[in-house]
Each structure stands twice: as C-alpha cells, then as structure tokens.
Amino acid sequence: MPTGVGFASYVLVLGALYSLIAIGFTLIFGVGGVLNLAHGALLAVGAYAAVATVSLTDSIVLGAFAALVVPAVASLGLYVGMIRSVRDNPITVLILTLVVAIVTEQVLLQVFGGQELVVRNLVSGEFDVLGGISRHLGVMFVVSWLLIGALFYFVNETRTGRAILATSMSDRGAALVGIDAERVYALTWLLAGGLAGIAGLFLAEFSVAHPFMGRSPLILAFAIVVVGGLGSIRGSVVGAYLISFLDQAMVSFVSERLAGVSALVVLVVVLLVKPEGLFGRELVEE
C-alpha cells in the first residue's frame, strides 16, 4: 500500500463512497423511520446493471447511467410494492427488506454466477497531480462529492427537498401545508436506490463485483450511520470519513488483517458513550 498520497487518496475516495451509501441509508430512516436492509443488495444491483449494460452496449456512459437508474427504480418498486403497506411497522419492514436482500443476492448469483468480476475502470491513466493519482479514483471522488453536494443543496434549498425535511419531522404537519407524504417517501426511496447504485459501481471498480458485495458495506454503513446519528446527512459524511480514515490507517500502518475492525470498535465506543450518535437526528427533531 503506497504511502502519503496513495493513503490520502484511498481515504478520500472511500470516505466519499461510504458517504453515498450511508446517506441513502440514513435518508430512508430519517424520513421514513424504517431501516432498509436491502440497501446493501442495491449496491450489487447497481454494479451488475452497469456490467450488463456495458457488455451489451459497450458504452461506459450508459453503464453508469444504468447503475444509477436500475437500482433507483428497483428501490422505488420495492417501496411501492411491499414497504408502503407495512410502513407503520418498522419491524416488519426490517424483516421484509432482509428477505428481499437475500433473495436479490440469490438471483444475482444465479444470473451472473458467483465469481468475482473485475470491472473495467471508467477512465484509465493518471492525473499529473501530486505525483500521479489514478484518474478513475479522481473521477470517483469528484462525482461522489458532486452528488453529496447536490443532495445537500437539494434537501436544504429546493422546495422538494424541504418537503422531505418537513415530512421527516411530521407527515401530518407536512400534509397541513400541502405536502404529499407519499410522494416524498417514494422520492426518498428512489434517491437512496440511485445513490446505492452509483456507490456500488464505484465500489466494484475499486475492488471487485460479486453478488454478496453489498454485505460488508451495509454493515459499515450501519456503523457509520449510528456513529454519525441516524437521520443526519452531515453525520453520515463525517462518520464515513472518520471510519474510512481509521480503517485505512489500521490497514496501512498496523496490519492488513485488521480491516474493518476500527469501524466496529468505534461503533461500540459510540454506543456506550453517545448512542444517539454525533449529530443526533438532523432530519428529525426529537
């Protein structure tokens, strides 16, 4: 593992990727009040959608587009088809999404096979900056942060985004000012799916794609979201970078074998000290 620049670039990129995953997860929780355990599987769906599209059309752009759209639509379909009717029972949602996740993984396994797929980089070569950062990392970083920035702006500044904020606080209150909570929920699930899909594509590029690739990111996202505060976008980003940094530091400077531990340790510490997380619930007022 390269030092200095390499380390920093890994941290920055992974942090951004995990932010995307965590934000989607925390959006659904903050607005809908439910935990979506199928979120990890959507990552895999995004990666494979891209792979399939590229092998059919040989266009990377279309592939990226598929990675964005297919999981988004799938997520929306999941909400409309199953979750909407049991929305008020978070436990049932938990169970349902878990089952969906497992089924999705099995389907992907059957269709694409279980071997790890190496995904071709979106762009090749290096940037002539700081001693050479691989371009595809740079692209991932920039795109991720564009998405994060866009999301932030969207939620805080635009009308629809504020509608999401309002609904996250109270759907009755939101209804009183003319917001259709149902539309908001659907939008949230759509967004979360898209975010997961792109993150899945990037993650596949970063390492490999395989049907169960969503599992450890989901656990990591869960840890990040608990650390950052369930329902907080800011918290998700901060938590993602914190954990990404700690994890990479562990792997680079201590031992490769300690991958993932720091996230768990931080999780335990946070749960013991401040279970509500760093930022509490920004999307929801207590």
Partner: peptide, 22 residues
C-alpha cells in the same frame, strides 16, 4: 444502554474478537 443498542454491542463484540484473532 438501552435494549436494542446493547444488542448491537453484543452483535459487534464477537466480530471484533474474530478480527483480532485474524
């Protein structure tokens, strides 16, 4: 710590030990 949060801690503890063993 409250119930579900405690359960989460119990979930994570063995995973940490496994990592340390690795």
């Amino acid at each position: 710590v409250k119930g579900p949060y405690f359960s989460l801690i119990t979930l994570v503890a063995p995973l940490i030990v496994i990592s340390v063993f690795r």
